[in-house]
Amino acid sequence: MTATLNIGLARASLETKLFFRQRDAVIFTFSFPIILLVLFGSIFEGDLEGTGITVAQLYSAGLIGAGVMGVAFQNLAIGIAIDRDDGTLKRLAGTPMPRAAYFVGKLVSSLVLAVIEVALLLAVAVLLFDLELPTDPARWATLAWVLTLGLAGAALLGIAVSSLPRNAKSAAAVVSMPYVLLQFISGVYIPFTELPSWLNDVAAIFPLKWMCQGLRSVFLGDAGAALELTGSYELPKVALVLGLWLVGGLVLCLATFRWTNRGEG
């Protein structure tokens, strides 16, 4: 168990190193949500129905959620599909490395990336769009558990989805579609009040909507609760759904994970 954890952490440091040495991936992964935040924040100015909350602040909360999902879900799923394609997984499977160490490495390295991503987005939101950082420690605690649960759930989902693409070339297309769709229906870009109720129901199945809802509770505060569909941030429900995804994602991973490309195993 300790061996698995130690090797897992060594893999995490290796994975993180590998990520930062791929300049284009670094720039694209981190800048995408930041550019969107600057763009949306600049286009849509003004307050939301007398709550004192600006549209830019609303987008900040949503894009932090989307950014975390980008790192955990998209980046991870594409990364694993590439590992499967270029021989990384096959090579590892031929060594005595505990198999779980590979996943520990992926999860911990995406946690590192997510923390950096959130810090960057928060800095932009605070500097450009007057987002107020919470002063109440309870809200920071909420931020911590929402991000941890959301990240872990999204990462496990990413690991499961990584088995869908036939090879690394198709991975970006296969993985990006559900990610982009989820952002549109989960209240990241378009206010959920403008979506038909059935789409809101679909979004409620997936973790992104709940992660964003939890993040709004942290950054928009009590005044923003009135904007929610139910008039409340429903934090217990957020915890429940994200927790369920964690378990479901784990089961899905164990059932679908392949150490080789389809047709080779």
């Binding site: 190193k17 590998l18 040495r21 791929q22 270029d86 021989g87 990384t88 096959k90 090579r91 031929g94």
Partner: peptide, 9 residues
């Protein structure tokens, strides 16, 4: 292995 191109960086 015969074809491994991993860990290039």
């Amino acid at each position: 292995l015969q074809t491994a191109n991993d860990a290039a960086e």
